[in-house]
Structures are given as C-alpha cells and as structure tokens.
Amino acid sequence: MVKVVFTANIQRHVACPEAEAPGATVREVLDGVFAANARARSYVLDDQAALRRHMTIFVDGAAIADRSQLSDAVGPESTIYVFQALSGG
C-alpha cells in the first residue's frame, strides 16, 4: 500500500487525513484515495484530472514529472506528498 500525505493547508477546506491505497502510479493511488474522499479530488486535480496549476506532488522526496497524466511510478513502500507549490514572497 502506498501512503498519501496531504498538506495541512487543505484541511480547513476539506478533511484529507493521511491515507493508503494500492497502485503502481501516482494516478492509480490517488484514484483509490479519492474514491473514498470524493470531495477532496477537485481540490487537488483540475477539470481535466491534471494536477492543479499551483499544486505539487512529491514521491519519496522527488517532484513528479508528469503533472497531467500523473504517470510517475510509485513502489509499494512509497509515500506521496500532496502540497501547494510555493514560490517567492
């Protein structure tokens, strides 16, 4: 099972507790998590199911490369972090 951790800042809008789901890619894992927490989906993904422009996802400490298809591979012991992208200011 892959662990998914959400930014603390999202919690005041929608509860996103740490979750686990199976999958070989970021997409597969997040689909599993959002199946159990449907409201959270639109806070992370846009209308085309791509990662929102100002969000970022790290897998085991590395930012994912595929922000539209979320095809980056994950291992069974991986941890996915869903954060806001911050820059400057």
């Binding site: 800042n9 999202i10 809008h13 639109s42 806070y43 992370v44 846009d46 929102r52 100002h54 969000m55 806001q84 992208a85």
Partner: peptide, 8 residues
C-alpha cells in the same frame, strides 16, 4: 477562489 485548490 481558493487559488491553489481551485474555484468552489
């Protein structure tokens, strides 16, 4: 408009 988290 939550910015990072989209329009609601």
């Amino acid at each position: 408009d939550h910015g990072h988290f989209g329009v609601k």
